[in-house]
Design a binder for these strands. Structure first.
Length: 477
RNA sequence: CGGGGCGUGGCCUAGUCCGGUAAGGCGCUCGCUUUGGGAGCGAGAGAUCACUGGUUCGAAUCCAGUCGCCCCGACCA
């Protein structure tokens, strides 16, 4: 029970605030294994909502769900050199089974490209079977040196989509299409504004030809990569021999993509919207959209509770997720409790309201309080939620834009990063060495080369060589 | 793997310097009074003081070692 607990302020200690918030709001808890977490009902409900919305969007693009095993023979992983090199430091390996040492070690999947393309190598034969569009919802493990609840855990839940195409253009189109799906879910449902763009060659996924990502600014001005989409070209199909006969009766390797998003989204949601009172959840993603708090003395309890119950049923019939809180504790405890848990709308109903057939509404994001006639609720609430959803997005967007700076020299780069933090739009010559030097000197990395970055001649902020466009730098989680 | 912090009822902490057989607050259970921004009184349950070894008549406390967790950095979604 998270009653009577005060939260560290964001401005005092952001990391502490974040951890306390996750634990106190009961999104998740620590587990016996370092880096693994227990996702509690509230956290899991948010994940289920993300899952449901995303799954619908995937299916609209003809993607079907599958399930591949969690255990992958080590040798399979080793077939794509760059891929295994990228992942080997992070692998969890099973060496024993049934009390005996295994002939071949099995890795717990860090991602499933290898086992999937190994399988389809023999199944794909004709262009008529393409495109292959599959996705799976599962857990993966990547051994992390440093973990953080939701944002980086050793085991996490995610979806990984995998597609195979007959042409490079189709693969590219699919990689971008799925990035668009992620963007829609983040912006429209989670109220999280995203920068979208392509990763620099050093930041891209192990084995990918091109990686795209959504980059989000959270309240301590750092960047979170919220979702990624990769075009692998023929790298995996060549490593695993995934070929088909095209319309000209020619044997050809397929072009593959993969795209993923994870429970990290929950951490991002928290870091973008939550405040010093607790979670702030957008109405479209909240587990409980409306909480009803009856307020009464013992004399009028039945009357008030009955009215609250009636309201609860009405609102539920209208399709909202509603919780009426009949616990025998002071109303003010319930206020703090549900604020901590981020419920978008609270309806207070006491003798006053019952008598006047009114209801008092309090909006979580602004704290705005208003008293309205109960009869008006059904037409008012959709507007309140729509406005809240829009307001939360706009607020996050404004925050992000206010902390995104255009810088033109390395001196300015360092100063702004040091003093103002946030994202930096700067020219970059495209060389790995400048990227690396900037990283080692400032901790900032190229988060993305944004799609909306207009061509613009300039000089690399580090070496002064010509550059054709600005890229986005930031310190990242 | 480096740097820092911390392990004492479910939670937060005092007690550790200076050894004497575990204390307070919160929460929990029961009863009564309360209920519009963190209520009150009464009764009660709940602890191998992270672990192992040592010193001692006696260890939460001293000594040695081990383990675990969190935070900050290097690796990564």
């Amino acid at each position: 029970m998270a009653i009577n607990q005060k939260l560290t302020k964001r401005s005092d200690d952001f990391a502490k605030w974040y951890n306390e918030l996750i634990l106190k709001s009961e999104l998740a808890d620590y587990s016996p294994v370092r880096g693994c977490m227990i996702i509690l009902p509230l956290g899991y409900a948010l994940w289920e909502n993300v899952q449901r919305l995303m799954d619908q969007e995937f299916k609209k693009t003809q993607v079907e769900n599958v399930y591949f095993p969690a255990l992958i023979p080590l040798s399979l992983l080793q077939k794509e050199a760059e891929h295994v090199e990228g992942f080997s430091p992070q692998l969890a390996v099973v060496t024993h089974g049934g009390g005996k040492e295994l002939a071949e070690p099995l890795v717990i999947r860090p991602t499933s490209e290898t086992i999937i393309w190994q399988y389809y190598a023999d199944r794909l034969q004709s262009y008529r079977q393409l495109p292959l569009l599959i996705n799976q919802w599962c857990n993966v493990m990547r051994w992390e040196m440093r973990t953080r609840l939701f944002l980086r855990t050793t085991e996490f839940l995610w979806q990984e989509g995998h597609t195979a195409h007959a042409t490079p253009a189709e693969a590219e189109e699919r990689a971008l299409m799925m990035l668009g799906v992620y963007r829609k879910v983040l912006e429209e449902y989670m109220a999280i504004p995203c920068y979208q763009g392509v990763k620099s060659s050093q930041e891209k996924f192990a084995g990918a030809e091109n990686s795209y990502s959504l980059e989000v600014m959270v309240q301590d001005f750092k960047a979170v990569q919220a979702a990624t989409s990769h075009n692998f070209g023929q790298r995996f199909s060549k490593a695993f021999g995934v070929t088909f006969l095209n319309e000209q009766d020619e044997r050809q390797h397929v072009y593959t993509t993969s795209w993923g998003s994870s429970t990290r989204l929950i951490g991002t949601l928290v870091m973008v919207h939550a405040d010093d009172r607790g979670l702030v959840l957008p109405p479209r993603i909240a587990r409980t959209q409306i909480v009803i708090v009856p307020i009464s003395d013992s004399e009028n309890r039945k009357r008030v509770f009955d009215a609250a119950g009636k309201l609860e049923n009405t609102l539920r019939e209208q399709g909202y997720t509603v919780k009426a809180d009949y616990r025998d504790i002071k109303p003010v405890h319930k206020f703090y409790d549900w604020e901590l848990r981020g419920v978008p709308l609270r309806i207070e109903i006491g003798l006053k309201e019952v008598t006047a057939e009114e209801a008092t509404l309090v909006q979580r994001d602004t704290g705005k309080k208003m008293t309205v006639r109960q009869a008006e609720l059904s037409e008012l609430i959709p507007g309140i939620f729509e406005e809240m959803q829009r307001r939360m997005f706009e607020r996050a967007l404004q925050f992000r834009d206010e902390h995104t700076y255009v810088v033109n020299s390395f001196k300015e780069f360092r100063e702004v990063l040091e003093e103002k933090k946030g994202f930096l739009r700067a020219h970059w010559c495209g060389s790995n060495s400048c990227e690396n030097d900037i990283k080692s000197e400032t901790e900032a990395t190229i988060r993305t080369i944004p799609f909306d970055s207009e061509p613009e001649t300039g000089e690399c902020v580090y070496c002064g060589k010509p550059s054709g466009r600005r890229v986005l730098f930031a310190k990242a989680y």
